[in-house]
Design a binder for these strands. Sequence first.
DNA 1: AACGACTGTTGCACAGTACGCAACGCATAC
DNA 2: GTATGCGTTGCGTACTGTGCAACAGTCGTT
Lengths: 250, 250
Amino acid sequence: MSQTVDRALSILPLLAQGPADLGQVAERLGVHKSTALRLLRTLHAHGLVHRQQDQRYRLGARLFALAQEAVESLDVREIAHPHLVRLGERTGHTVHLAVREEGEVLYIDKVESRYPVRMYSRIGKPVAITVAAVAKLLLADLPEPERRSFAERLDYPAYTPRSTPDAAAFLKELATVRAQGWATDLGGHEESINCVAAPIRGADGRVVAAMSVSAPNVVIGTEELLALLPLVRRTAEAVSREYSGAPPAA
Amino acid sequence: MSQTVDRALSILPLLAQGPADLGQVAERLGVHKSTALRLLRTLHAHGLVHRQQDQRYRLGARLFALAQEAVESLDVREIAHPHLVRLGERTGHTVHLAVREEGEVLYIDKVESRYPVRMYSRIGKPVAITVAAVAKLLLADLPEPERRSFAERLDYPAYTPRSTPDAAAFLKELATVRAQGWATDLGGHEESINCVAAPIRGADGRVVAAMSVSAPNVVIGTEELLALLPLVRRTAEAVSREYSGAPPAA
DNA sequence: AACGACTGTTGCACAGTACGCAACGCATAC
DNA sequence: GTATGCGTTGCGTACTGTGCAACAGTCGTT
């Protein structure tokens, strides 16, 4: 690994917490000011950091552009998108698409609910991995030993009383999800929000992504949301077929 | 500037165009494979690149997370957001918030239209700077010499017959926008899409951001959209006041 | 108004570190 | 079975990044 690059990249998460001046960056990196300056200048030249009027540095615009270009070149996303839109139109609720990467699960696409009461989420934001329906599907597909060791390394924040409490409960839930081929999150992340999700599989049967429909229970009851499950599953299967090479249905 | 970091960061835009294997990265960087490998490993350790099953590299998840954290810590965005949502609810159309940074204009927030026919845009995506209404506002605020030299460095792509054709026309338009305090884009980017925008100013009167309402003319005519201008301007002024330190209105 | 304290900036000598080379392991193709 | 292509490793060299010290600019203080 390259020391210089390592140091430079360590600046990014540091600035993600908020703007910082040269001295702060140097101190938190544990290097001389002149070194920090050179690194910041290089990052600046690439647009990854931006210097605001008060001379402090914060993350720059190119970072957004890069993230956008990256998300748009994901082929699952490209294939799934029209299906998500159609599902959004038919149900009126928020639709998400998520993938697993390096031990994180993150949303890569989203169609907003047409109801005024919306849930908060953002493309690119890591998902609450122990409770989200899409996360359960993506992790349930891991081979058993990996799944176990992963589950044991996680934290289990008690977002609500219905949140997954510990690794044992999580592994049990994953087994259920794996067997039934779909997942739910009933108030496990936010008290009033429910979620149903289905897996998208590649040609080899592995789960490559997961999609979900979410709605606050002030808008639609748990029963009614669960009634959407067949539709969600059919949509996910249509995406799976297309992703595996089948031509899109007319 | 640091050569090593410079090379490492050059990998990112390269991968943004699509996944690439080690040889391709090395070649396009003009370095030896072993050098490219070391750089990629460092980027990988920071989560900025991801290695997919076929061993090729693509941009990684942390990039999204960083971009998200960055955009969420912008205080203009935080203040403006509820106003955008309300404007979205009242008009039903797509609402954008944009800022200028390092010679680019980019969207930092968005409320989706509730109509099925939506315009395409994404948070983080650089704006078509020569035609977008928000871009005109942000650039019109630059001091005259800077504005001129900037306008002359731009390309003027002819997205439609109504696109700004050249620097002279653009500067004239900017003068108008500056004088009237609002801007439009009537089919300059996409034939059928119109836009009205108003500036958000800081305590010193400088334009710090701009917000717009956009709609395809199949949904709402030009006249009707222009009729929304007073509402957009009032909203922008409310955000300006709050951003300058005034308490939010009840 | 002069001072001090603070910040960001520059040039430089040193050595630490990133560089390219060459050889290796490992697949798939022929 | 051989051959070609890929990613990977270890290593000597010298390039390049490093910290130091001195400078410049800005703010707040006395």
